[in-house]
Amino acid sequence: MTSYLRPRDLEEAVVARAAYPNWMVLAGGTDLMVNANHKPIPGGILDLWRLGEIGFIRVGDGAIAIGAGTTWHEVERHPAIRDRLLPLALAAREIGALQIQSRGTLGGNIGTSSPVGDSLPVLLALDATIEVASVRGRRSIPYSTWCTGYRTSLLASDELIVAAHIPLPGAGTWTTWRKVGTRRAQSISKVMGAAAIILDGGTVVSARVALGAVADRPIRITAVEDAVRGLSLARAAEAARAAVRTSIQPIDDIRSTSVYRREVAENLVARFFTSAAGVS
């Protein structure tokens, strides 16, 4: 038998989480339903679906805070996210089908921490901070340090994800995202990437570049970030391509090959820089 608890508020939720750290935390249920066919049924379920305190989108002066319980449909439809954090809105639109987007949540993607989580490279590129809560209190974790391995993270066993805080990119920052899946919709990514490129005219001041599906976790490609500083966009594109080549070791699996993933990752990252040329 599986135990089930649906807390009334966050306070009750963190108490339950502390009491039952091995229970599955359920947001929209999209992982639970997939696992139902392949994995043992969890001993207990802590259901946070539609918990008010984690279901919000707050637009502040310097950042947008998105509650962990926000669905991808809500993310994709939000005018401020579309306006200021376009890559996140675009990623939201590519997560499964509309039915999945209406159940799956930002917190679920962050918590599951799959190497192919579609929003995760965007959170890296946009330099998000994750706010978590427990009976011990709240803390903030830079998303750049969040992922610790294959589906593992810094989230402690008594903690719940409350929100992602995403700083608003400045006027000179070009943000972009691309997913390459097995087909055009409802697919698992073969390679994906996101970038935030801070420009001064046609020169790269700095950049954050992230890739998914090329390692055991979503990763920032610091070699690219180091290589492109101070370069023109055209030269940055070539430097980025070379840096990607030597900094990832993707795998062969049922969906694609290591060779393909590496080559496409190079192309995507290079394209992030050349496509920025049109806006600078």
Partner: peptide, 16 residues
């Protein structure tokens, strides 16, 4: 069959 599920044994969607 190594891809015996609809996730990996894919068929075109309308988007394709």
């Amino acid at each position: 069959v190594a891809n015996a599920n609809m996730t990996n044994c894919i068929v075109p969607t309308f988007a394709d």
